[in-house]
Computed example of a mutant assay.
Amino acid sequence: MRREDDESDEEDEAWRNAQNRAATMVCQPTAQQTHWGGFVAGPSYKPRNRMMTHANLMNNYFNLNLVYTEKDFRRRFRIRRHVFKRLLHDVQQVNPYFQQKQERAGHAGFSPHQKVTIALRMIAYGSSADPMDETHGISESSCLDTLEQFYVTIVQVYKDKYLREPNQEDLDRLIHKAEDRGFPNMIGSLDYMHWDWNNCPTRWQRGFYERLRMPTVVLEAIASYDTWIWHALFRVPRSQNDITVLGRSPLFNSLTEGKAP
């Protein structure tokens, strides 16, 4: 009986050794295998000159002897230059993705100016990633990653200050400003509009068809005199008018629950 147990243990040990050798052979890289990260020459590789595109961007908008004026900057970025610099500083402090790093191949990654510029340009113009590849030398996947990281970081940084309902101090300021303009006891102007939803999923299109026989979505928004949008609703399906959208909106929930300032 002992001999059979010894033979069984030897067989188990031999089987485990064979499995370990097989795993080792699989995990070891061969001469044909390439490592992830950095520039790898291949069918999909494009020799983008990141340093040149960064230098052009800095010479055009940020260096002392810049090419384009403050007016040009605001028209193309939809914000002023000092707002861009504040965004650039804030996102770098919160998200390491926007800090320039060195890749495994030893090449410098995209600069913070390039990443924030790409995100703002795609938002301002509603453009796809292909134009960013041509002008800034960044691939489509990197553009989309940068845009997603920018959205998440902006919400994380500014949600407590901007993405909220007005408090008592905000209401006093809004009412005072409205009184100066001849509208006493008003805190804002409520408006609705239909937005064409070109990329509406097929299974949802019937629920979002509007009178023009195309999918639209209703936007309800309230903005202050300084363009602070302190309320927005952007998800009402089917054909709606202003009254029905307002009835489904959470705008007055805090008021009816006794939680409003």
Rank of each mutant, 00 (worst) to 15 (best):
L171R: 09
P201S: 14
I243D: 08
H231A: 12
Y225T: 07
G109N: 10
T135W: 01
E220K: 04
P112V: 05
P47T: 00
Q99V: 03
Y209L: 15
V157N: 04
A22K: 15
A260P: 05
L64F: 05
T256S: 06
N95L: 03
M51R: 04
I175W: 01
D191G: 12
F39Y: 07
L57E: 08
R203A: 11
T24R: 07
D242W: 11
R206M: 14
F98L: 03
H176M: 02
A55P: 00
P237Q: 13
M58L: 12
P261M: 14
N253E: 12
V217N: 02
R3H: 08
A124P: 01
R238S: 14
F62D: 02
Y97C: 03
K101Q: 14
E148I: 08
Q93I: 11
R81S: 06
N241L: 07
P47Y: 00
V217C: 13
Q33E: 09
F110P: 02
I118G: 00
R80A: 08
K85D: 05
N65R: 04
D160P: 01
M58C: 03
Y209F: 10
R104G: 14
L255C: 10
Y192S: 04
V116N: 09
G106V: 09
S8K: 08
N17C: 02
F234Y: 15
R81P: 01
G109F: 02
Q19H: 09
D172T: 07
V218G: 00
R86S: 06
E257S: 14
Q156K: 14
F73A: 06
H89C: 05
V217S: 04
P184L: 06
D12V: 11
L88C: 06
M1E: 12
E169G: 02
R121W: 02
Y162K: 10
P29K: 07
I123R: 08
G247H: 14
Y162I: 15
D170A: 05
Q32R: 12
L57K: 05
R238E: 15
T34E: 13
K115G: 05
N199Q: 15
H54R: 06
I79A: 04
H54E: 13
G126Y: 05
G182Y: 03
D9C: 09
N185A: 04
G37S: 09
L163V: 11
V155F: 03
V83M: 07
Q114K: 05
I229R: 02
P201V: 15
